[in-house]
Design a protein around this nucleic acid. Structure first.
Lengths: 132, 132
DNA sequence: CACCACTACCTGCAAGGTACACATAGCGGC
DNA sequence: GCCGCTATGTGTACCTTGCAGGTAGTGGTG
């Protein structure tokens, strides 16, 4: 490797690798809701495990409402004894269908990324053979 | 699976799973150019193997020029005996650094997707246990 | 009781990336 | 001369994303 880890230094927003799938928030929400009904704030804390560290609350709530408009999820208010009321979400049959569709897509992406990385490692190996 | 493959029917651009990484074009071009100098039209035909089927030529040329402005690639004109002149691209050292950075990011994404799919399959298995 | 922290939900906006259509030009075949 | 293929680009409208802000209820502390 030439000039070390220099590239990581100037991580300007323009060029920085981000790389998570487009619309990744949607399949994440579909999966979590397929595992059980939940509310926004709770989902916000669980999507981090799926790769979305520091997700934006605004985007999350917006996406949930959009998915409700599209019929993928249902919601109702739940008034708990302590704390503010929360809107609890639940997957519809159509939402489940979309989860399956997304899972298929993401499996494809996973496969493609595997191919990319394999090809990259071939390059790496041949480079280290020249300069070990 | 309920109601079959119904979800695939109304693939409106709004809700359709697409799912390739954001900015995926860039790491693809970096990888291909790391494998050897090439020109736009040729790259266009090769990125399909990496997951970008039917990629848009406009975006590709724009991205190449942007990467040149950023110093990731160099380019020069090559006049062949037959057909129009082509602009040939070549990776710079900085471009190679970015390829490494991208590969790291994509490896992370690959891992996260693996986690997602594993979690999805757990769900699938428990669903098929109820309705086989 | 005034104040602050925490949970919880929601809106507005600017920047950036993507998709689609379109424009140009050289060359070869009919 | 016209069409199709290679090859490189521009214009633009749309969507997503990230960030900043704004409301509200509850509980604890001085």
């Amino acid at each position: 490797m030439r000039r070390g880890a220099q590239a990581a230094d100037r991580m300007s927003p323009l060029y920085a690798p981000g790389g998570l799938p487009r619309n990744y928030l949607r399949p994440c929400l579909l999966l979590l809701l397929a595992e059980g009904a939940s509310h926004g704030y709770d989902l916000l804390e669980h999507i981090a495990q799926l790769g979305l560290e520091r997700a934006d609350p605004g985007g999350l709530y917006r996406t949930l409402r959009a998915m409700e408009r599209e019929g993928l999820v249902r919601s109702w208010w739940e008034h708990s004894a302590s704390g503010p009321a929360r809107r609890t979400y639940d997957l519809t049959d159509e939402g489940l269908d979309w989860l399956h569709a997304w899972a298929g897509s993401l499996r494809e992406v996973h496969r493609h990324l595997g191919g990319y990385l394999a090809r990259y490692e071939v390059l790496e190996r041949s480079a280290s053979r020249i300069a070990p």
